[in-house]
Structure formats: structure tokens, C-alpha cells
């Protein structure tokens, strides 16, 4: 079990790490573009589309992180009054619900990527195909699903009354 936890952590951190690098690169690219335009009257081609596609990479690859950090919260007013075992059952079903929802999202995103691949749609300036970016989004959604499994595992441990194995809040 420890190994599974470690693996999930690693995957989510790796994914968020790429997201972080992408944030830095987009910042540099935009500043380079402003400087080029203001000082040398030449701009970087396609900053517009690179920024929005960059946001796709940043956002989707980062989605697992807030989930395992426990930041995607709902209202805990009722939940807080529950007994630990009932809480665990609650968490279990919420995780199942989220896994089910995002599994459909994952599958549909792959279908979407397939459709885009066959439609030859490209970005207006750099003529980049959209498909690889849709696959990146799908990967991010996959990581998010993995993060829900983390919650699921934790709920199972909580139900057994064993809180020592999973070191998250």
C-alpha cells in the first residue's frame, strides 16, 4: 500500500512539475514578445495561441495536486458532525462519484481528440494540430482520477480505523 501511495504522489508531483515549468516558460515568452514588439518592432509569432494552449497544459497537469492536498473542498458543516466510520463511508461514495464522472470525461476527451485528429483543424498562426494538447488534457484528467483513488484508499483506511498509513490531512 505504501508503494501505491508513493507512486500516486510521484505521478501527481511529476505532472504538477511540468505544469510549473510551463508557467515559467509562458511568462518568459510573453515578456519576450512585449519587449520585441516595443523595442524592435518584431513580435513572437503565435504568442496568442501558445498562451492559451499553454494554459491547457498548466491547468490539466496541475489538477491532481489540489485534490491530494485536500483543497477541493465542499461544505463540511454536516460532515463534521458525523462519526468517523460514517465519514469514511461518505468519502468513499464521493470518491466513487468523482471517479465515475471523470472516467466519462476522460473517455469523451479521447473521443474528442480522435475527432479533431481527423478534422485537420490547426491553430491559425503556427498551424499546430490541436490533438496533442487534447491528449495532454486527457492525461491530466487521468492524473485527477488517480488522485480520487488516493482519497478512496484513504477512506478505506479510515473505515478500518487505521489512520497511520496515509499521511495526508
Amino acid at each position: 500500500m505504501k508503494a501505491a501511495e508513493k507512486g500516486i504522489r510521484k505521478l501527481i508531483n511529476f505532472s504538477a512539475g511540468i505544469s510549473g515549468i510551463c508557467i515559467f516558460l509562458i511568462m518568459l515568452m510573453t515578456v519576450w514578445d512585449i519587449a520585441g514588439r516595443r523595442l524592435f518592432n518584431s513580435s513572437v509569432a503565435g504568442v496568442y495561441e501558445l498562451s492559451s494552449l499553454g494554459l491547457v497544459v498548466i491547468s490539466f497537469l496541475a489538477m491532481g495536486l489540489p485534490q491530494i492536498e485536500g483543497e477541493n473542498v465542499g461544505v463540511t458543516m454536516i460532515y463534521d458532525r458525523l462519526k468517523p466510520k460514517v465519514k469514511a463511508v461518505f468519502d468513499f461514495f464521493i470518491s466513487i462519484l468523482c471517479i465515475a464522472l471523470f472516467s466519462v470525461v476522460f473517455r469523451q476527451t479521447l473521443t474528442f481528440a480522435g475527432r479533431m485528429a481527423s478534422s485537420n483543424q490547426i491553430t491559425p498562426v503556427l498551424h499546430l494540430p490541436l490533438t496533442p494538447f487534447i491528449y495532454t488534457a486527457a492525461f491530466g484528467i487521468f492524473v485527477l482520477i488517480v488522485a480520487f483513488f488516493w482519497d478512496l484508499i484513504k477512506a478505506v483506511y479510515d473505515f478500518k480505523g487505521d489512520n497511520t498509513n496515509v499521511g495526508i490531512k
Partner: peptide, 9 residues
């Protein structure tokens, strides 16, 4: 960068 990724996500 991690913090920003987390909030953005």
C-alpha cells in the same frame, strides 16, 4: 511554481 500550479488547477 508548485503553489501557482496548485491554485491554477
Amino acid at each position: 511554481l508548485y503553489g501557482t500550479a496548485r491554485i491554477t488547477g
